[in-house]
Simulated assay, not measured.
Amino acid sequence: MSLITLTTDFGTKDHFVGAVKGAIYSELPDAKIVDITHQISPFNITETAYILKNAYKSFPDKTIHVIGVDSELSIQNKHIALELDNHFFICPDNGLISMIASEIRPTKIVEINIHDRVESSFPVLDVFVQVASHIARGGSLSVVGKEIDSYKQIIEIQPKVNEQQTSIAGGVIYIDNYGNVITNISQKLFNTVGKGRDFKVTARRYTFTKIFSRYNEIVDYSIKNNGQHDGEKLAIFNSAGFLEIAIYRSNLETVGGASTLLGLEYRDTITVEFENPVTPEFTPIN
């Protein structure tokens, strides 16, 4: 039996998560359900994509991922099911797949069409559960919808590189449980554009000229009181490979996180400026 994961903005106070799990067990008594998170900020597509993109790869092939964020059916927000990287995703076509599939194209995409048989104001419960159960039983995507070759794209949150290759303009896409600020600037893009040049990262009025690969690299262990580094700000490429602005050993109840201490919020601009233009490679004339 395939694993089924749930990612929603339902929270855990209300009955929604329990109802979805109950419906799955009614269809598949032996199902294995894993909660990725139900604490997505309401309707936050970017946050959903960031979390899911970094979580799904840890699951076995053929895992089915049910995504209930901004899932109300409308003309502009259809429902899709797709196979991507040997995983199945059931979700609204609201742009989140364009971020998850930025480097890997889906093998097959269908627009779910079982709504004609199911009247619902809670599609995750009444529609997505049926589709997930069908796939878990070995059913084909073609049975639940018509095949399509595209999905909604979100391009305004993609980092932008200027023509001179001297800067990257990115933005905040997620703030984690520690208050650390994650941007959409990947280490791969940084290295491709930067080509080893000196740089300056700017986040509001704060600047960084070094990016760490581990949080504790900021600590000078030759100093007896290592705790003096607690609360220091730093830039790091996190485990997901994105530029992050952090506070070392941040505690939201005492020290505070980068978001609150530096005044950074979702979609705020973060820029990287590189020194000196890239020198074109010399090609000798024969």
Rank of each mutant, 00 (worst) to 15 (best):
S2D: 12
I4D: 00
T5D: 06
L6P: 02
T8H: 02
G11K: 02
T12I: 15
T12Y: 15
H15P: 08
K21A: 11
A23F: 10
A23I: 10
D30P: 03
V34C: 15
D35M: 07
D35I: 06
Q39H: 08
S41T: 13
F43A: 05
E47T: 03
T48D: 01
Y50Q: 05
I51P: 01
K53P: 07
N54E: 11
P60E: 14
P60D: 14
V66Y: 04
E72C: 14
L73A: 11
L73C: 13
I75V: 12
A81N: 07
L82P: 00
L82E: 03
L82A: 04
F88P: 00
I90N: 00
D93F: 02
N94A: 08
I100Q: 04
A101E: 03
I109Y: 03
I109D: 00
V110R: 00
E111R: 10
E111D: 14
D116A: 12
D116V: 10
R117T: 11
E119N: 13
S120M: 08
V127I: 11
V129F: 04
Q130L: 12
V131F: 11
V131Y: 05
A132E: 02
A136C: 15
R137I: 10
G138H: 07
G138R: 06
L141G: 02
G145I: 04
Q153E: 13
I154H: 05
I154Y: 03
E156N: 15
V161T: 03
S167N: 14
I168W: 00
V172H: 02
I175L: 10
G179Y: 00
G179L: 01
N180S: 07
I182D: 00
I185L: 11
I185C: 07
I185W: 07
L189E: 12
N191F: 14
N191I: 09
K195F: 13
R197S: 05
R197L: 06
R204S: 08
R205S: 15
T209K: 12
T209N: 14
S213P: 08
S213R: 15
S213F: 13
E217S: 12
I218T: 05
V219D: 03
I223D: 11
N225F: 15
Q228S: 11
E232S: 06
E232L: 03
L234W: 04
I236A: 00
S239I: 10
A240R: 05
G241I: 12
G241S: 14
F242A: 05
L243V: 08
L243I: 13
R249E: 08
N251T: 05
L252F: 12
E253V: 08
V255E: 04
S259C: 07
G263P: 06
L264R: 00
E265H: 09
Y266E: 06
Y266N: 10
R267P: 07
T271V: 09
V272T: 09
V272N: 03
V272Q: 04
E275Y: 10
T279N: 09
E281C: 12
E281V: 13
T283R: 08
T283C: 11
N286A: 13
